[in-house]
Design a protein around this nucleic acid. Structure first.
Length: 646
RNA sequence: GCCGAUGUAGCUCAACGGUAGAGCAGCGGAUUUGUAAUCCGUUGGUUGGAGGUUCAAGUCCUCUCAUCGGCUCCA
């Protein structure tokens, strides 16, 4: 009689099976349909291939497309299909790595001639062909020495190297499908035919260093994605199109918000009048809120002498990101990459008493940082930008309270711009760090309590803090559910030491304050870019550079329009009159393309009844309204920062 | 910085190695108009820059600048 093993299912039920049964057979015993949907199994929480014999009692879960992790297996098998196709079409290519990533997968190849877009089409066709061959995909385990030898024989040096690196803690595994062999942890689908035509797409080609290191050889990377269904793939491709439509660089040009000029230099932003108006509105709001929250403002210079940057440590740790030095009167100056040393110098300008702490000093400080030319990206990654910076100097006993205050303030600010979903990441002490361990622990705990207090979800990034202190970063989700990191609150144990910061406490002795560095919006440039993409250029009423455009039907209605305009302007509304001798359809079309929230059409009817005909960019013709009624509604929406117009 | 792609009028894009074009915008004129484009006319270019090959270069080659997609989310 065959030996039996006991398998426990996720619902808690238990059943006996003959020893050596495979996940596939277990699935089949439950239903044919489950067998069909099965991607892999989880044995005691470990994902395994479906055909692996099970030889001991265990908890077992059949993984289907319903599990979140399953898509990674599907994509990983698609990546192997890609590599298989490349090896058939271009046998001289050497395979490197092919992992799954957030929205798909990639595979790196070493090949003399780079792939072209038309190669991608050929590769896709070959992938379909290999899928149709219905090759079984099988796992083999061996020692790393055997794997290394195997890949050396196959002239795959990258795989051989990986076998050595990954094999130091026991056995390694390879997967075979037909003639193709890959070094891989698995698990995988059981057959190439499981990757269905129309569920995958190769997206782009890029260069990538072996192991991401600039010193290593540049490989050719192919990006692609796949989904369980054609429909999901189509939706994903649509989302990419949608993101292109929202691209802040495209909208920035179309809406005349900003530009970057080759003659000025890459990564240096020119704010056009409309963009500058949005910035002004953000800044006004920002200042008002800071005053309400007990901040004071400071202004500091754009350059400082080298001694300052030596003391601060920037010339040791940050020099490669700083603009080169300037010589003047036998002195060396640097353009500032950060505002902190200047704020510290204000602190040091006289003795500080515990009675005046905490001090909260904010500045919209423009800094310059050298970024490699290849990484510059519209407003998102630039070389000159304005941080919404602040530094807090806090006595130890008020540190936690202060951190809680900052986090709550941050969320209030972000919510005003329509962001509702936040995640926090708390970065803890790295290996190389300054400051006493006790301070690190206290500060990290304070950050955690602040996140709890604000009821936002948070994760720890162990060892991810800067050398000078722990930090909490807050990410938001935008309208396309993309993550953006905006806010950061960082402790700094370095500068107070370096600059010997002190305050006189009630014991009449000097003590060292905590210093907290924080930015809420990050930088105005980047934040503006995110706002453009989030709202697709249709800024909320309170942020719109032009809120209302009045459009007279004919010349005889212009004076009425002008009268309204004057009245609106006196109430601080941003309004213009389109008095051109053009048809109303054209005026509407242009205002609509400029995404102006309210269009007011005035003609004989409106003059007669002292009304305006209201049209919104989002809802079309809203009909006639009394002027007072319209004003009341608009002013209320501005005051409430309403995201809607109707 | 590195790999690849791209660079033509203000914008979006055409042009087998053989005279650089279109639409929109701009400008001039006509039209006085009711909820997403009125009509006619017209200006506009050292084809990113510098060299080279050729009888002839937007097109081919070299260099250079800029922009775009990427450059370890662990086989």
């Amino acid at each position: 009689m065959a030996e039996e093993i006991k398998i426990t299912f996720p619902d808690g039920s238990t059943k006996a099976f003959p020893k050596g049964i495979s996940g596939e057979e277990v699935a089949k015993s439950i239903s044919e349909r489950l067998l069909n949907d099965a991607v892999a199994v989880k044995i005691d929480g470990e994902p395994k291939d479906l055909y692996i014999p099970i030889d001991k009692d265990c908890e077992l879960k059949i993984m289907t497309s319903r599990e979140d992790e399953s898509i990674d297996i599907y994509r990983h098998t698609t990546a192997h299909l890609l590599a298989n196709a490349v090896k058939e079409l271009f046998p001289e290519s050497k395979i490197a790595i092919g992992p799954t990533i957030e929205d798909g997968f990639y595979y790196d190849f070493d090949r003399e001639t780079p792939f072209t877009p038309s190669d991608l089409e050929k590769i896709e066709e070959k992938m379909v062909e290999i899928s149709k061959r219905a090759l079984p995909i099988r796992r083999e385990e061996m020692t790393w020495q055997e794997a290394k030898e195997l890949f050396e024989k196959e002239n795959e040096p990258y795989k051989a190297e990986l076998a050595y690196e990954k094999g130091q803690n026991g056995k390694v595994s390879i997967y075979r499908q037909g003639e193709f062999t890959d070094f891989c942890r698995g698990p995988h689908l059981t057959n190439t035919s499981k990757i269905k035509e129309g569920t995958f797409k190769l997206l782009s080609i890029a260069g990538a260093y072996w192991k991401g290191d600039e010193k290593n050889k540049m490989l050719q990377r192919i990006y692609g994605t796949s989904f369980f269904s054609k429909k999901e793939l189509q939706e994903y491709l649509k989302k990419i199109e949608e993101a292109k439509e929202r691209d802040h660089r495209k909208l920035g040009k179309e809406l005349d918000l900003f530009s970057v000029s080759e003659e000025v230099g890459g990564g240096l932003i020119l704010w056009h009048p409309k963009g500058a108006m949005v910035r002004k509105l953000i800044e006004d709001f920002w200042r008002d809120e800071h005053l309400k929250s007990g901040y004071e403002f400071v202004y500091t210079p754009h350059v400082g002498k080298s001694a300052l940057w030596e003391t601060s440590g920037h010339l040791d740790f940050y020099k490669e990101n700083m603009y080169p030095s300037m010589e003047m009167e036998h002195q060396t100056f640097y353009t500032k990459p950060m505002n902190c040393p200047f704020h510290v110098m204000i602190y040091k300008s006289r003795h500080r008493s515990y009675r005046e702490l905490p001090l909260r000093w904010a500045e919209l400080g423009t800094v310059y940082r050298y970024e490699k030319s290849g990484v510059l990206h519209g407003l998102m990654r630039v070389r000159g930008f304005t941080q919404d910076d602040a530094h807090l100097f806090v006595p130890p006993d008020k540190m936690e309270e202060e951190v809680i205050g900052v986090i709550n303030f941050t969320l209030k600010m972000l919510k005003a711009f329509g962001f509702e979903e936040f995640t926090a990441y708390i970065a803890t002490k790295p290996e190389k760090a300054v400051g006493e361990t006790q301070r690190w622990e206290d500060a990290t705990k304070a950050l955690q309590r602040a996140a709890q207090n604000a009821r936002i979800s948070y994760e720890f990034d162990e060892g991810g803090g800067a050398f000078y202190g722990p930090k909490i970063d807050i990410k938001i989700k935008d309208a396309l559910r993309r993550d953006w990191q905006l806010s950061t609150v960082q402790f700094d144990f370095n500068l107070p030491e370096k600059f010997q910061l002190e305050f006189i406490a009630s014991d009449n002795r000097p003590h060292r304050p905590y210093m907290i560095h924080r930015a809420l919006l990050g930088s105005l440039e980047r934040f503006f870019g995110i706002l453009i993409e989030n709202f697709k250029g249709a800024f909320p009423l309170w942020l719109s550079p032009e809120q209302i455009r009045i459009m007279p039907i004919a010349d005889r209605h212009v004076s009425y329009a002008e009268k309204l305009s004057t009245q609106f302007k006196s109430r601080n509304l941003r309004v213009s009159v389109d008095s051109r001798t053009e048809k109303i359809n054209l005026k509407i079309r242009e205002a609509q393309l400029e995404k102006i929230p309210y269009m007011l059409i005035v003609g004989d009817k409106e003059i007669e009844s002292e009304t305006v005909s209201v049209r919104t960019r989002s809802g079309g013709d809203r009909g006639g309204k009394k002027i007072s009624e319209f004003l009341e509604d608009v002013e209320r929406r501005i005051h409430e920062k309403d995201l809607n117009l109707e």
